[in-house]
Design a protein around this nucleic acid. Structure first.
Lengths: 197, 197
DNA sequence: GTCTATACTAAGATAGAC
DNA sequence: GTCTATCTTAGTATAGAC
């Protein structure tokens, strides 16, 4: 699949890569709507215009498809360098706003994160690594704010980083259940206002 | 089941109620470990020492069993009147500490809350109602703090209530995945320190 | 009222033909 | 690379024994 990743690639794997992309897109939709367990491979295959056996040829197990969907999600995230050099808070709030336009992906992430806590779940490593990465990135951002004298006295950068991530996850969960009752981006902004002078 | 709820009840429903309790306990364990979808009724029945058909006699559908487990979880929560009249923050932190001793129940709650966001999930109403109730209770507590002049300037009671619940949920999720990396109760305490003068 | 046996549909997964 | 056929196990419904 790596060989065919470049656009317009000619070769034996080009068609396979296109099929894989179609499958992943269909799976993201089905999993987001129904969850990982309740979303059937037959429904994914149907949405991608092929039989389930053909799907299974490309992704040997349902887990593999799941991990491919998660990897695809990460590629779609906003990257700091895609944005104007605004501050950390603005970037986080902008990402939260952007997430409002892809409720399916948010649902997929939330459902899978919770499911992954169960024993031997295929995505457990993915989410554990992701939490490690988020802590590292956000702690560095809060430390930079602290060095600039903009962090409120008594606020620990790592604690702030962890709490921000947790607040985000918890808010997204509630937003999925009660979209008209909460504003994820506004909640994150209110947290920044508490910790930034 | 209502008839036999009192301890030591003699009568035609006494045995049934005892069986139901055993089933709910077994189901809480199985669902917490494997999630709702992945946890099979056959495994629950086995853990409860009966056949699956017998289980199905007591709980006609898997959903009914799920809702019974959730109701049982609510009964086990700390109630304000069970505690010394300490302040709101202490009560919340104490509940978070108490939750550390029942990781199975925490996992059950987290997995089901996320699963419930998917279309037509049987527990969707339960969690939506629960969020409404939590908002109401916690907003009242923060308003009381505000009236006592103990809330930080510019902090909205309802926002603080929603953020506290979201922080709690998000922290519990991470704790399930990385129990040695975070301290849920400490995180909640740090939030109180930010909003309370 | 309580429990068991059995059958049905749909899920993930595998084997093999073309 | 794609499909048909098949296997195992899931949830569920029903019929009936004690």
């Amino acid at each position: 699949m790596v060989q065919a990743e470049a656009a317009g690639r000619r070769g034996p794997y080009a068609k396979s890569a296109a099929k894989r992309e179609a499958i992943v897109a269909a799976a993201a939709q089905v999993f987001a709507e129904n969850g990982y367990h309740a979303g059937s491979l037959r429904e994914v295959a149907g949405a991608a215009g092929m039989s389930m056996s053909t799907l299974m040829h490309h992704f040997g197990r349902k887990e593999d498809l799941l991990l491919a969907v998660l990897a695809e999600r990460d590629k779609r995230r906003l990257e700091p360098d895609q944005y104007e050099p605004g501050d950390f808070a603005s970037l986080v709030v902008a990402q939260a706003r952007a997430n409002e336009s892809v409720p399916g992906l948010v649902a997929l992430y939330s459902v899978l994160a919770a499911e992954s806590t169960t024993r031997d779940h295929p995505a457990r490593g993915y989410f554990s690594d992701r939490f490690d990465r988020m802590r590292e990135q956000y702690t560095a951002e809060f430390e930079a704010l602290s060095a600039a004298g903009r962090l409120r006295a008594g606020v620990d950068p790592r604690t702030a980083a962890d709490n921000l991530v947790a607040l985000w996850d918890g808010m997204q969960l509630r937003w999925l259940l009660q979209p008209d009752e909460v504003d994820v981006a506004a909640a994150l902004r209110s947290y920044f206002e508490l910790v930034i002078d």
